[in-house]
């Protein structure tokens, strides 16, 4: 049987798809920003933080990195209400993404921090910088610059992971595609459009991260 593509059938659903793109972008931006923040805190805790803080952070990182995002999401959305923590689907999705990216980001950023030569800490201290100042200016920024490409890839992976959030009725791109598929039976068209949208979003995200990188690390650009 030859299949005839009919993208015209999708046209009435354009607003739904546009809304889906908006939600996916929202999830990625909020989840990405908070996730990187959590990753920085955890990376600090695991490499420079107090000794008692290391085992719990390590446990968190290992637990998240060795379980599927889908199960994490279901645990947060379906499981937590039974112990009294009820979240809306958007909040649950964002929380799951932050927790997920936090663990992966922690490992990536930690690799950058541990590549900092010892002498740099001493140099920071000899300039009468406080520990926090040293961490921020001497350790963190060069570390972030070192691992920026890896962090970018991880955020793209998290954006692809966000497709799963459609399963808890977050109305993202995948949700729109599923909806169209169930209404029109135009599965190929719906999912191809969704796939292309993800592809384009990933390209845009990489470009944004590259620009953000040159903005965050302006003076060090020449050194690279």
């Amino acid at each position: 049987m030859a299949y005839v593509f009919d993208y015209g059938a999708i046209v009435p659903y354009a607003p739904l798809i546009a809304k889906g793109v908006g939600i996916t972008v929202e999830l990625t931006v909020i989840g990405g920003a908070l996730g990187v923040g959590l990753g920085i805190v955890c990376a600090w805790a695991r490499s420079l933080g107090p000794r008692w803080l290391r085992p719990p952070v390590t446990l968190y990182v290992e637990l998240i990195r060795n379980t599927p995002f889908l199960i994490q999401l279901f645990f947060i959305f379906f499981g937590l209400p039974s112990i009294g923590v009820s979240l809306g689907e958007m909040q649950a999705a964002i929380l799951a993404m932050v927790i997920n990216l936090g663990a992966y980001g922690c490992e990536i950023i930690r690799a950058g921090i541990e590549a900092t030569p010892r002498g740099q800490f001493e140099a920071g201290a000899s300039l009468a910088m406080t520990r926090i100042q040293t961490f921020r200016h001497v350790v963190l920024m060069p570390a972030l610059q070192r691992i920026w490409p890896a962090l970018t890839s991880q955020i793209v992976i998290v954006m692809f992971g966000s497709a799963v959030c459609s399963q808890i009725a977050v109305e993202d791109i995948t949700f729109a595609a599923n909806f169209i598929q169930s209404r029109t039976f135009r599965a190929f068209e719906a999912y191809i459009i969704a796939t292309v949208l993800y592809l384009v979003l990933a390209l845009i995200l990489r470009q944004v991260m590259r620009s953000l990188g040159t903005l965050l690390f302006p003076r060090r650009r020449a050194a690279r």
Binding site: G161, A163, T174, T195, L199, A202
Partner: peptide
């Protein structure tokens, strides 16, 4: 592209 899209396709 997301693995989920490949599965659906």
């Amino acid at each position: 592209t997301p693995l989920l899209m490949q599965l659906f396709l």
